[in-house]
Amino acid sequence: MPLKRDIEFVTSGARGWAENYADEGDLFLRIGNLTRDSIRLDLSDTQRVVVPDGAEVDRTQVQADDILFSITAYLGSVAVVPAGLGRAFVSQHVALVRPSKKQCLSEWLAYVAISHVGKTHLETTGYGGTKVQLSLADVTSLPMIVPPIEEQAALIEFLDHETAKIDALVAEQEKLIALLQEKCQAVISHAVTKGLDPNVPMKDSGVEWLGEVPAHWEVMRLRNVTTLNPSKSEVSHLLRETEVSFLPMEAVGDDGTLNLDRTRPIGEVESGYTYFREGDVTIAKITPCFENGKGAVMRRLHNGHGFGTTC
């Protein structure tokens, strides 16, 4: 049956409250508090807000067992409001559904919503161009699978137990990945500053953060061994219709990988973009990309040349 057959009401959240954000205030639940693979709210980054004077709050204030749906981004993100949350409201990008519980338990409705059946409906029902969104009617048309209440309760208990085990395993793997990444960074740092021979004579590098380096090494500034921002005249001999690789910032991974799916004619990118060629090293120069160490060696460029973001 459609979700609308077992709800008291559905509404979207409060609009225009952003200017009322405050350190002290009521919880303001946004899309970021909903997760795509869990029915639990993520409260690690919750905004607080002071309710504007005269605001209509009755229908946008959440209660325990309400179900929240993302309706403007990350469609398929759903969460159930837990008991004891306190006074909280939802933003305009979140739909609040209050079940009547006559035929379905809240947790069961939420699990169906994040299942393949529910996600497929929510992700394909959305409308719009660059910004896909859901209407409240789209949300309440979500097809529900309805076992008897007792069976729903048993399935909820099973899913809570199994997903908690998987979440714990994921957390352990994330810790292991973080430790391995630290080890990888330590290995790289040691090799490029100390070399491979532990017995080689060392000398002061003259750079405080670098410390000692092998005595037979030289220490130079980058500008003395490279050409920074090479001239675009290197491609002046090519036809303006020549296709070259085009890499906006999102095409460069934090791990140095490149997405080379995009190409553009030189004539379209030679003005306003950064030029590079096969074998060049690129480094992001603005935060947060710079802080994340985003950069790469340019390999397998289309026709040996490319252009990308000026950042």
Rank of each mutant, 00 (worst) to 15 (best):
V146S: 04
K285Y: 00
A79N: 03
A113R: 04
G86I: 07
R15P: 15
Q47E: 09
E172G: 12
S100H: 04
A137M: 05
K102I: 09
T310A: 14
V200S: 13
V112C: 14
G25A: 06
K119H: 03
I67T: 02
L210F: 02
T227M: 09
A164T: 11
Q103S: 10
I31R: 07
V244F: 02
T309F: 04
A171P: 04
S245A: 10
Y273N: 05
E157T: 09
D261W: 08
E212G: 00
E174V: 00
S245V: 09
I31D: 06
F28W: 15
T287M: 10
L159Y: 01
K175F: 07
S77C: 12
G32K: 10
T11N: 14
L247N: 09
E123N: 09
M249A: 11
G25F: 01
F246P: 10
M202D: 01
L134W: 06
D254K: 15
E208R: 14
T35C: 09
D45K: 10
A186S: 13
A154S: 12
H305P: 07
Y111F: 14
S236E: 13
T125M: 12
K175E: 15
N224D: 15
G118K: 02
L43V: 07
V192P: 14
L159M: 11
R40G: 01
P248T: 06
I114T: 04
A215C: 10
G54E: 06
N199H: 13
C311Q: 13
E234G: 11
D167P: 11
G256R: 11
A296D: 06
H190L: 07
P198W: 03
V78F: 04
D138L: 02
S70V: 03
G84Q: 08
A22Y: 02
T227Q: 12
G25I: 03
P198K: 14
K203W: 12
K203P: 11
Y111W: 13
H161S: 13
W108T: 06
E208L: 12
E174H: 07
